[in-house]
């Protein structure tokens, strides 16, 4: 464990909790893509099946459990409790266009052709594109509330910190996991455009809206 990974994990956790709290306190999930949140729940479920097979640390286990619980709580709030506020007319990204190719790729390119390893690989590939329905929704409506922007910034920050973590681990331990690194870089690139808008607009106190 190094500081980049720890801060990355905490940034990820902050993003997840911030979103949950926003939905809970505003009693609304307007502007949030339920599809992205469903995909994240699927990501955590397929990745953390190793909770049953290997123990790494108390930290590792508790974070996994918290991520899974929060992901399902978010999905529950969007699709059940505050369903009436869910903006499904704007959440039109076809999630199957992500899940199916990613599933195929996980079968073809993986470290080991075993069920658990294929599911882990699937979750890594899926995580890299799971935010696309949310970004698509923002591009459709043309704006995002500032709290949604903070959420995305923390998620993107988590990815960027993981890249630094991989560089650090490569030089200090000789460790690298090519699948995680390539997927992680793809994921970070998806946030670049958003980062630019965030820095130029949200930080200066404006609502994030796209140039007309």
């Amino acid at each position: 464990m190094n500081v980049f990974r720890l801060v990355g994990d905490l940034s990820h956790l902050l993003a997840i909790i911030m979103l949950l709290k926003k939905i809970w306190s505003s009693r609304s999930c307007a502007g949030i893509s339920g599809k992205s949140q469903l995909l994240f729940a699927l990501v955590f479920t397929t990745r953390y099946l190793d909770l049953f097979t290997s123990f790494i640390s108390v930290y590792n286990t508790s974070m996994k459990v918290i991520y899974i619980l929060c992901a399902y709580a978010t999905v529950y709030l969007i699709y059940v409790k505050f369903k009436a506020t869910y903006d499904h007319n704007h959440d039109t990204f076809r999630a199957e266009f992500l899940v199916v190719p990613v599933g195929g790729l996980a079968f073809l390119v993986n470290h080991d052709f075993t069920p658990l390893e294929i599911l882990w690989t699937f979750s890594i590939y899926l995580e890299s594109v799971a935010i696309m329905p949310q970004l698509f929704m923002i591009s459709k409506t043309g704006e995002a509330e500032s709290i949604t922007s903070h959420y995305l910034f923390c998620l993107g920050g988590y990815r960027a910190l993981y890249i630094i973590n991989w560089l650090y681990r490569f030089y200090s331990e000789g460790f690298f996991d090519l699948i995680a690194i390539v997927a992680g870089c793809v994921q970070t690139i998806l946030y670049c455009d958003f980062f630019y808008l965030y820095i130029t607009k949200v930080i200066y106190g404006q609502k994030l809206s796209l140039p007309a």
């Binding site: 990974r5 994990d9 990820h12 990745r47 190793d50 290997s54 790494i56 590792n60 974070m63 996994k64 991520y67 470290h111 080991d112 390893e117 882990w120 993981y162 973590n165 000789g174 460790f175 690298f176 996991d177 090519l178 995680a180």
Partner: peptide, 10 residues
Amino acid sequence: SGDYEVHDEL
């Protein structure tokens, strides 16, 4: 080289 036996990252 990576150790893919156990994935220790979240």
